[in-house]
């Protein structure tokens, strides 16, 4: 019994379980799992271009995932990375599409505007929590919808590009584009920005007083309150920082990948980021690895659809399954911890 649960709760067990469930999903979709998996792997890692696509997805996921991980570490369930990413991306796209500046300055300004936009959007939820005690799960989620319609309104009203279809800003001039990291792929140096942020977060958590206070607030809010930690400040600061990171991510999609802002530029990166952050144990380094794993699923999923005719939505089913398996893992782990504690204190 014990061995069985520890098997399921182990990472290997999680992978085996997910692969098994994926196979079932493929069978239901009418494809041989062998074809499906080989398409997934070849399509995501089978060559330079494939790896490039995987890393493009990795980069897009890494920013919001790091943001979500930061907030979760501070005990705040930021479900709103999607909206924060959108607002940041829109500001970046508005600047890049309409303002002339020296190219390097323009790129830096776009990334900064991304941070400001996302940070502001996160700070709203932070302020609502600190001042009005509004549950941040609800407020961040609701702000996603506000962001979705707000960007749609702003873009169609004021920012529409000349040859745009749908809600798109004009294309950025070519010299506003982030340089390509791997030639002949779509991968920009945006992923380096993401890795730098991961390193900065690691530093924040391990070396700084603020990071320490955030972790205490996340692990034991009452202990934080009683030990001179200003929880209101931690709350809005964490959500603002979390949003800023997601917002920079939005800006890198604009300057590094799509080269314009489109209101539908995210296929739900902000939501997938929640799973990525949890798979990565909220640890910046592990979140990088988890993002790569999910990048494989995203890029490979498309290849799977293109070659094995498994609908790409199957990938989202799989992502849902991963979240489920993880939740179960956490539950099992927590229960056994509680049993041991009860035993130790008797």
């Amino acid at each position: 019994m014990r061995r069985a649960t520890s098997f399921i709760s182990g990472p290997l067990g999680a992978i085996v379980l997910v692969v098994a469930l994926m196979s079932v999903a493929m069978l239901v979709a009418g494809t041989s799992p062998i074809d499906g998996f080989s398409a997934l792997i070849v399509g995501s890692l089978g060559g330079r271009s494939q790896i490039g696509e995987t890393l493009v997805a990795t980069s897009a996921l890494l920013f919001p995932s790091l943001g979500v991980a930061l907030a979760f570490r501070a005990g705040l369930f930021n479900i709103g990375a999607e909206g924060q990413l959108l607002v940041g991306a829109m500001l970046a796209g508005a600047f890049g599409g309409f303002v002339s500046a020296p190219p390097v300055v323009a790129v830096v300004v776009m990334l900064v505007l991304g941070a400001i936009g996302g940070g502001f959007w996160g700070a709203i939820a932070g302020w609502m929590k600190a001042r009005l005690r509004a549950n941040e799960i609800i407020s961040t989620l609701m702000l996603n919808f506000v962001a979705q319609y707000l960007t749609l309104f702003v873009v169609t009203q004021w920012l529409l590009g000349p040859s745009a279809t749908g809600a798109e800003t004009p294309w950025l001039p070519n010299n506003y584009w982030l340089p390509t990291l791997i030639p002949h792929t779509r991968l920009s140096i945006g992923i380096l920005v993401a890795l730098a942020i991961a390193a900065a977060l690691q530093f924040l958590f391990t070396r700084t007083v603020l990071g320490y206070e955030m972790r205490v607030a996340g692990e034991a809010p009452e202990a934080a309150r009683r030990n001179g930690i200003n929880l209101s400040r931690i709350t809005w600061l964490s959500l603002a920082l979390s949003g800023a990171i997601a917002g920079v991510g939005g800006a890198t999609i604009v300057t590094g990948e799509l080269h314009r802002f489109n209101t539908q530029l995210s296929p739900g990166y902000g939501y997938i980021a929640i799973a990525v952050a949890l798979v990565g144990d909220l640890d910046p380094i592990k979140v990088c690895i988890a993002s790569f794993f999910f990048g494989i699923l995203e890029a490979g999923g498309l290849a799977m659809q293109a070659s094995a005719q498994v609908p790409k939505d199957a990938i989202h089913v799989i992502e849902g399954l991963i979240i489920l398996v993880l939740a179960a893992r956490r539950y099992v782990a927590q229960r056994s911890e509680r049993v041991e504690e009860a035993a130790a204190s008797s």
Partner: peptide
């Protein structure tokens, strides 16, 4: 969405 164009074109390119 328009954001799908490049990934879709690239996915087919890779095949």
């Amino acid at each position: 969405s328009a954001a799908d164009y490049q990934p879709n074109l690239t996915a087919l390119t890779n095949l």
